[in-house]
Design a protein around this nucleic acid. Sequence first.
DNA 1: CGCGATTGCGCAATCGTTTGATCATCGGTT
DNA 2: AACCGATGATCAAACGATTGCGCAATCGCG
Lengths: 336, 336
Amino acid sequence: MAKLSDVAARAGVSVSAVSRVLSGDPAARLSEATRERVRRAAAEVGYHPNFAGRALKLARTDVIALVVPDVTNALFTELTRGVEDEAVARGCVMLLARSEDMQPGGPMFDRLLGEGRVDGIVLQPRDGADPAALAEAVGERAPLVTIHQEIPGAGSVVVPDALAARRATEHLIALGHRRIGFAGGLSASPSARRRADGFLAAVLEAGLPAEPGLVTWRGYREADGRASAAELLARREPPTAVVAANVNAAVGVLAQARAQGFAVPRDLSVVAIHDAWTAEHTWPPLTCVRMPLYELGRTAVALLAEVAAGRPVAHRAVEDPAPALVERASTAPPAR
Amino acid sequence: MAKLSDVAARAGVSVSAVSRVLSGDPAARLSEATRERVRRAAAEVGYHPNFAGRALKLARTDVIALVVPDVTNALFTELTRGVEDEAVARGCVMLLARSEDMQPGGPMFDRLLGEGRVDGIVLQPRDGADPAALAEAVGERAPLVTIHQEIPGAGSVVVPDALAARRATEHLIALGHRRIGFAGGLSASPSARRRADGFLAAVLEAGLPAEPGLVTWRGYREADGRASAAELLARREPPTAVVAANVNAAVGVLAQARAQGFAVPRDLSVVAIHDAWTAEHTWPPLTCVRMPLYELGRTAVALLAEVAAGRPVAHRAVEDPAPALVERASTAPPAR
DNA sequence: CGCGATTGCGCAATCGTTTGATCATCGGTT
DNA sequence: AACCGATGATCAAACGATTGCGCAATCGCG
């Protein structure tokens, strides 16, 4: 790999001159002739600044880390794409790690933060992690932006959870449903609480009774959805429709409904929050409220850049595009 | 962030002494008392070697890149998990990029290779990329291991494509099918050719007629699967079963069959190569031949480490676990 | 022509780590 | 008592890029 000194030798100038030309330093006083010679020489030897040398001097790596609970979850793929696109657009590269490894004391924690490998971190804490402890451990070592969850001292970006839940619920109400269940996430999860709030608000606003037994707090995974559905369908008067707080859970709701002999959407309508490639191919295809996860990723990186630049930490909601109903085939008017 | 010199000052020794103690240099002659003082001081200030300084001196970053065509594809998530696990186990971190950006001249190409950001690359070329041009461009700049496809001068790992196709086909033959279609990948794709070979071998071995019109070469995506199914089902004597070369294509086959009024599995059995979270939740749930993608990822990194260590480039097939039939509900004996 | 300002470029320090070479000290041997 | 070989630890030179500062040469102007 060609070095600065190789270019310098070939162009017959000093390394400092080359550095200034190539980095486009506006304050540099160099003749246009020299600039041209340097550029030519650089192109000829295929020069690219060595990453390590640069990082050492500038105390900056142009690397950002994306840390997610589960790399195989379909929902993270859109987020990942957004983060990657924005990172590339800003001249950075993206490093991927698991939340599990990123706890204080985990193998990644010191490697990323302690060794100074990254300029910033976009983190989605795993459910059940202690956000305060993490914030404390991260401290001032690197700018941090969290996804879906605010933690003190760090920036955060969220999607409009309450609004999405409200849209989902309104769709069912418009179809004529009056007894609607909510297959919710863990009560410890802020996003789960926001979604439940949105659901309740829509229900109340429509003048429907809000029975506490109609909202469950099982979690976002498929098995959680199954448990939620089992709980809901075991009631004396089971709901005619359910809002699933997560598309993965919705798949579980579908499976459990089928197992208990409920036909969807005839006997039970199901609408999910989040869309994913999977939702299109379930049976019946799931009606969803699509969340702007790609934009969430892009926004997270943009915010990270801001706090890295010294701007005060902020908390942002991604409003555009707004949560949108994607009608497929899992909802219908209630049976008479 | 604490530096070597901070530790040295605190322990009352020189930086070189600290470096030797902390890196566990066996040839270093230092008293046990000093070693202990150094270790204590390092722990007290929370020392971690600065990444850039280290990388500069050692000409090694302990970063490997995983480059895939499409980060949102469900099949890559297992691969990603395997690569990440093996990378972490080897003390490395994983960088994720898209094949699209990794073409010679693309934004990532120079950033990763030219700037020396990575010690090696695990690459799945996108369909239609020119592997030779890529190999040429990568040259000696970094060890390279490709997935699913051999390219000259680089290591490669593959899964047993022919065997998997054979297992899928044998399953249908055992059910009594005699006219079996193959919804294949692009003919330019080596893995697609291997799968077609396995299919044909099983068909021939069973003494069934191998009509050329029964194998299509549309591609691995869902739309491709739809096209394949349309082609197959338009025949005067449509097949009673089809092997889909890819689970995503299989989803398309399912959709097209439904659209044309074929009930699966009554009128048409479908078995897919590859398993994914999605396959479990289609309707009917897809019978698949599971491929060892997680192990593929781990093996790729292991091989990468070998060629980085100077061992000759090798081509490896991941045989363990062997492709296994996962029976769900998309296959049945042919209708009489 | 003389002087200050400007232009064009190079010197050398710096970032943090690793490592071959060097040096002082000390116990043990002849 | 002089010397030798370990032993314990330090010095200093890299690795490659950036950048403040200094030094000539040239230019403009009176």
